[in-house]
Lab assay of single mutants.
Amino acid sequence: KELVLVLYDYQEKSPREVTVKKGDILTLLNSTNKDWWKVEVDDSQGFIPAAYLKKL
């Protein structure tokens, strides 16, 4: 599985998104959309702007 590093805090703005903190390491589930990547946070899944993430 691929991991990503969160570069900036992000507060979810819709139920399909997730809240993350700078420095979090998350599992990347889908990066086919260049603007929004799907990640797994704890036991939930959701989208975060790709610009907030860096592949490890």
Rank of each mutant, 00 (worst) to 15 (best):
D24C: 06
E12D: 06
R16G: 15
L29F: 03
E2C: 15
N30W: 06
K55I: 12
D42I: 08
V41S: 13
N30A: 09
L7Q: 03
Q11E: 13
T19G: 05
D42A: 14
K38T: 08
G46P: 09
K1P: 12
S44C: 13
G46W: 14
V41A: 10
W37R: 01
A51V: 12
G46V: 15
K34Q: 11
K22L: 04
N30T: 07
V4L: 03
E40W: 08
R16A: 12
G46F: 15
V4F: 03
E12Y: 11
A51L: 11
D35A: 10
D42N: 14
L7P: 00
S14R: 09
N30H: 07
V4R: 00
W36G: 01
Q11Y: 14
K13G: 08
W37Q: 00
V41C: 08
T32G: 09
F47W: 15
E2V: 13
K13D: 07
K55E: 06
L56N: 02
L5A: 04
V39E: 01
K22P: 03
Q45L: 07
A50S: 14
K1D: 08
K13T: 12
R16H: 13
Q45W: 15
Y52Q: 03
K1L: 12
L26D: 00
V41I: 12
E40C: 14
V6A: 06
T27P: 10
D24Q: 15
D42M: 12
D43V: 07
T32C: 13
L53P: 02
E17Y: 07
L28M: 03
K54E: 13
V20M: 02
D43W: 06
L29Q: 03
P15Q: 09
P15V: 08
V39Y: 01
V6T: 04
T27D: 04
L29W: 04
I25W: 03
D42K: 13
E12V: 15
A50M: 05
Q45A: 12
Y8Q: 14
A51H: 13
D9A: 06
L53C: 15
R16W: 15
E40V: 10
L26H: 05
I48T: 03
L3Q: 11
V6L: 02
L26W: 04
K55W: 06
K21E: 04
L5H: 03
N33Q: 09
V4N: 00
L29I: 14
G46Q: 09
Y8V: 10
G46C: 15
N30R: 05
V18H: 04
L3W: 13
V18A: 06
T27I: 15
A51P: 08
K22I: 04
S14P: 09
A50Q: 05
K55L: 13
R16C: 15
L29S: 03
L3H: 09
L28S: 01
E40R: 10
S44F: 14
W36V: 05
L26K: 01
A51Y: 12
E17A: 09
Q11R: 11
V41N: 12
R16M: 13
D42E: 13
K34L: 09
L7W: 02
V6E: 00
N30V: 07
D9Y: 05
K13N: 09
I48V: 15
L53K: 01
G46D: 03
T32F: 10
V6C: 07
G23C: 07
Q45V: 14
S14T: 11
V20A: 11
W36H: 04
W37P: 00
W36M: 07
A51C: 15
